[in-house]
Design a protein around this nucleic acid. Structure first.
Lengths: 400, 400
DNA sequence: TGGGTTTATTAAAGAGTAAAAATAATTCGC
DNA sequence: GCGAATTATTTTTACTCTTTAATAAACCCA
């Protein structure tokens, strides 16, 4: 049971974080606007901004004259030179590495072959990260944090509990990297990480309550509630793939029957196509067939879309989020899934609740997992900044 | 969009509230133990306790000698003389009123006939409340807060959006009472309120993440996440009754098919019995038949229990709570529902998640809703105490 | 009286807020 | 054209509030 002390340091950390994100998402904002937006007093802002500037996190540029009277504003922005964050998305067959500045701007992108052997995957990630750093001509000491996102159950303390696709169980994947990289590392389930990225960098920045639904081979979910990721008491909340939508229905990989992901996942769609004798074996082929107007494929997708809508309706009835974000292969297939899904949603979600829910598609694409890693790293960076922010005001007070 | 300022006053409110609840649940605790339990510094505690004592909220009794050396501890407890909280549970046919001291101890209990006319219901509640106050010989000025719990959708600002059982829509039920009672009033959905009561007064005091599932005529839910009630962006989260567990299944009152409450609610059970020609028309009759070993009733309940387990499995798969609490008529029928429900749970919930979830029955009984009202009133009292706590330290500083 | 235990007080450090002051441009008056 | 007034933004100062650590006080028992 964590009980963070409620004290001044916490206040400062919260307010600093809030200002950081506002600046990040509104580059060029002035201190006065910042005060208006955040509700924090201008004096407090002055102090915090000065600290952030001294730490090299925020940059201040005096604006060009506007032509109007008064002292010109200075434009605040996150200083890209502060250092880099790395996001690592681990999949069975590929490891995606993204390097970003601390404002989340992507500046390097890399895919290396994956491995089911943890040690090999770790080494591949490490080597890939080194390459990425070379790509931007950055020294390893400029790496401020690393976030790792992988498909599987991850405990609250970042241990891999079970990752069926990777064949990993009870593994501290980050430990080895932490040693060799000498910088903070966080590890999280890829869908939860992607939800975080959606909140920090995506289209749902101002949405405090949304559900991220990601189709990979199966279906995962991330609950973002009250402005923060909800992990649940064991870190397993949001695993919606095995919600039962058809009692006694199709056999699922989990051993159960009628699971959500046995009907609406990429794997389920491909399996259904195969069962109907269709040659498509991956999402690209499915999309190509759709564009050619392949009736079989369109029918299968409509069917899957209807089940998708049914599952989402349950999710919406329970959580009443403001938005549902679709990611992964669900996002790619969305054009052909959504019509049926929207119908099923209208039919099965309570009207009063359905009315206020948007169903949108993530724009993150394949970057969802590694950008989730960036989000994790950024969160870590703000939770526990390497330079002590908010230190005592320099004692250079002039006396009258 | 609420954005509470993060400042010293907030810290004090949070810490004061924490101490209040610890004292409430551990009457007789000493300041030192309080510090140990809460993690708050003894000095801070000293100040806060002095304020609470001066406000008449906490009482300090110097303990009898313990036989051991040292200054005797003083026992802290919530001062029952501080005043009363009222909880009002509104149902179509009855209004339940509970009076409690601010530590949540029930001291009066009353049921008056209900009404579908808002004005009549309001007047009945007001009159009942006056009677309850007379029962404990208390003046109306000692009433510190009122919480109202009713079956229906309630917006975040306490407006009744839709209460089908009462036939109310878009109604500010509390407004009239607020005028005549001249004390703070909060209004909330009864299941959410009951979940709050379960957290503050029930068996789930130390559980930060649980789901409260209440069977009335339908089925409602309350999500208690991260130590607080989750209302969702519109206050409609947790309305699990219309989760679809059987696609295209039984017609539900909502117009949809296959809803949770069309299979596992009191109304559904009674309807099924009627369809099978059984004479039981209420829960009492059902329970009596069960005790007589009535096969028909037991079979219907087992069937309903299986569907209950199926619905709970979905809830658990999504939320991964630490506990599911059953209340209302589900609690009364629990002995005959649970075996089948537990089986369905084992079958349909992911093992990794199922393993850490308890399924328990609320001990609140019929008091759930009005005690929910008490919980609301207490929360209101602590959020916005009538006497300003944490006032400036008395200026009686002695100088050396 | 002295030892031990618990509570209360005090001083220090840090946070936020409000008001005043400083800063830096433009605009006005001549 | 040039200085003073104006305007808008940021910083400083003064103050309150909070936590925390160190210190003092209160109290019982031996």
């Amino acid at each position: 049971m964590t009980k963070p002390r409620v004290n001044s340091a916490l206040i400062r950390r919260i307010n600093t974080g809030r200002l950081f994100h506002i600046i990040r998402q509104n580059a060029g904002i002035s201190q006065q606007q910042l005060s208006h937006v955040s509700g924090i007093d201008p004096a407090t802002i002055s102090i915090i901004i000065n600290n952030l500037e001294a730490a090299g996190i925020v940059r201040r540029v005096i604006d060009a004259p506007t032509g109007r009277a008064g002292r010109p504003t200075s434009a605040l922005s996150i200083d890209a030179r502060a250092g880099y964050l790395a996001g690592i998305g681990i999949e069975p067959d590929a490891i995606r590495i993204v390097l970003a500045t601390i404002d989340g701007a992507r500046c390097a992108d890399l895919i290396v072959p994956g491995s089911l052997d943890p040690e090999a995957a770790r080494e591949a990630a490490r080597a890939g990260l080194a390459s990425a750093l070379r790509m931007v001509r950055a020294r390893r000491s400029t790496l401020l944090g690393v976030g790792i996102a992988l498909p599987g159950l991850v405990s609250l303390d970042g241990q891999v509990v079970f990752a069926p696709n990777l064949g990993w169980r009870d593994l501290d994947f980050a430990a080895g990297l932490r040693q060799s990289l000498k910088c903070p590392i966080r590890l999280e389930n890829d869908v939860k990480a992607a939800a975080l990225a959606e909140h920090l960098f995506g289209a749902s920045r101002d949405i405090t309550d949304f559900v991220y639904v990601m189709g990979r081979s199966g279906i995962g979910g991330g609950l973002h509630l009250m402005g923060e990721l909800y992990r649940g008491p064991h870190g397993l909340a949001g695993e919606i793939g095995h919600m039962k939508i058809v009692p006694g229905g199709r056999l699922c990989g989990c051993g159960g029957h009628g699971c959500f992901e046995a009907y609406a996942s990429e794997r389920a769609i491909l399996a259904e196509l195969a069962a109907q004798g269709h040659p498509a074996r991956d999402v690209d082929a499915v999309l190509a067939a759709c564009r050619d107007g392949d009736k079989t494929v369109l029918a299968v997708l409509a069917e899957a879309g209807a089940h998708l809508g049914l599952g989402l309706a349950n999710l919406i009835n329970i959580m009443s989020p403001r938005r549902v974000v679709l990611g992964g292969s669900l996002a790619r297939l969305a054009p052909f899934l959504l019509p049926a899904a929207a119908r099923a949603l209208d039919e099965n979600a309570l009207a009063a609740i359905r009315h206020d829910v948007e169903l949108v598609v993530s724009v993150m694409g394949d970057h969802a997992a590694p950008m989730g890693g960036i989000a994790l790293a950024l969160q870590q960076f703000l939770d526990d900044p390497p330079v002590r922010l908010g230190h005592p005001r320099e004692s250079g007070r002039r006396t009258k």
